[in-house]
């Protein structure tokens, strides 16, 4: 059996048993289910609200599940000393990190599917139809979650669980604001600030690229071409994050 697959299978089993992640999932489902209640904010636009709140919830709770999952995936192996026994066996550290990422991605996919199916069920119940835009928005959210998983896991290979959590949440927030921040920096007259803004814009993943909720909520068509480009963008960042994670984990003293 392919070694990362062995690690992934075990990691997936472990993540499914984490009570904290189950609680987050339940909260996510409750929020999706109660999204209709938010329609009082925009009278007459109930469906828009359900779509917007539903997609936002899947993304936000998905991100929380991924970040907490990534922290547990590696740090629990170190804390419980299971890593000590595992790496004493013929297992390359590279395979361990890849396996952890695959396991985390599987758990992410499962949590995502549960929330997405519930959300689609709710839309079908209300509207009897689901536009292709909803599926496109969900696909982009899934790849955003895979990217967050890769980054959080990479950071956890060299940082403490607390730092990994703070850094990942911070990056998630900054990644959603980076486009806005960059356009602000562009307006400044300082060349240094402009250069710094461009540098950060190039390095930090722009999570807003994965956000087509506003368009989907009002049924604006999103081209498949955009999806392919954004998925490619996420795959490049995932590869870089995993390479960084593998590099630091190779050097880590257990």
């Amino acid at each position: 059996m392919y070694k990362p697959a062995v690690i992934a299978k075990n990691s997936f089993k472990e993540l499914l048993r984490k009570k904290g992640l189950q609680v987050l999932l339940v909260f996510g489902l409750i929020l999706i289910g109660s999204s209709r209640l938010f329609s009082f904010l925009t009278p007459g636009e109930e469906m828009k609200m359900i779509k917007d709140v539903g997609l936002s919830t899947i993304e936000f709770f998905g991100a929380l599940i991924v970040i907490f999952g990534a922290i547990g995936a590696l740090s629990s192996e170190v804390e419980k000393k299971t890593l000590y026994t595992l790496l004493a066996k013929p297992l390359k550290r590279r395979d361990f990190v890849l396996g952890k990422f695959l396991g985390l991605s599987l758990a992410t996919l499962l949590n995502f599917l549960l929330m997405a199916i519930f959300f689609i069920g709710l839309l079908l119940f209300k509207e009897h139809t689901v536009s292709s835009g909803i599926f496109k928005a969900l696909i982009l959210i899934l790849f955003e979650l895979f990217l967050i998983a890769a980054i959080a896991l990479a950071v956890s290979t060299f940082a403490s669980p607390a730092f990994t959590m703070i850094f990942s949440l911070f990056l998630y927030l900054v990644g959603h604001l980076i486009g806005y921040g960059h356009s602000l920096m562009e307006q400044t007259e300082s060349a240094l600030l402009k250069a710094a803004g461009t540098l950060f814009y190039r390095i930090i993943p722009n999570f807003e690229n994965f956000n087509i909720r506003d368009k989907v909520a009002v049924d604006i068509f999103v081209r498949w071409n955009y999806l392919v480009k954004t998925i490619g963008y996420s795959l490049i960042y995932i590869a870089v994050a995993l390479l960084i994670g593998i590099y630091f984990f190779q050097k880590r003293e257990i």
């Binding site: 059996m1 070694k3 062995v6 075990n10 089993k13 472990e14 048993r17 419980k80 000393k81 299971t82 000590y84 026994t85 595992l86 004493a88 066996k89 013929p90 297992l91």
Partner: peptide, 28 residues
């Protein structure tokens, strides 16, 4: 190499048989 650590910690959610199965896969 076979290694037994002091106070061995293993995946507590696995059964004894599953643990051996897991390590067997690691050993190919």
């Amino acid at each position: 190499i076979g290694f037994l650590p002091e106070n061995p910690y293993y995946y507590e959610y696995l059964t004894g048989s599953e643990l051996l199965d897991f390590y067997g896969d690691i050993f190919d």
